[in-house]
Amino acid sequence: MASRQPRFNQQNLIDTTPLPEEIPKVKELGATSAPLLSASYFIGARCKAYNDDYMMCKTDANGRGELECLKEGRKVTRCAASVIDDINKHCLAEFRGHWQCLENYNHQLWNCRSAERKLNKCVFDNLKLEKTIPDTPKGETPVHLKKHMIFARNV
């Protein structure tokens, strides 16, 4: 016999206490999965240093990374947010075109190449961020630049 009565209710019972005042505030990204996937390579291009710094801090913190890497984490979030803000400012139509295509095609990047080409061009012209896939075999066209694809519609 449990000594504690079960409590049932229909509300979302989450702890909403904010972080203490001495920890600086940062606005969360707030983007859903498709825009994040669409912007991921540009986030990677601009924020690689911050990302690596944060992940290294977590590795070195020996299990206390959650508490000790808050500063690095804020930098990561601010950098990613800056990328998404810039894309929204300069390439809103192309960005929307691409991530809505991703939503329609089950988040498969290879089904949205035509929208992606437009987005990549706009982002490169305005923000100087380029999509590069690391560790692509040498002497081969990167898969996002291929003219003819085996698996996708060639549009």
Binding site: L29, S40, G44, E66, C69, L70, G73, V76
Partner: peptide, 17 residues
């Protein structure tokens, strides 16, 4: 994979916070 690798720190930072 690289798209996810580039996103991981941002998502992890939010979750950790």
């Amino acid at each position: 994979m690289w798209a996810r690798i580039y996103l991981t720190p941002a998502l992890q930072a939010e979750e950790d916070r």
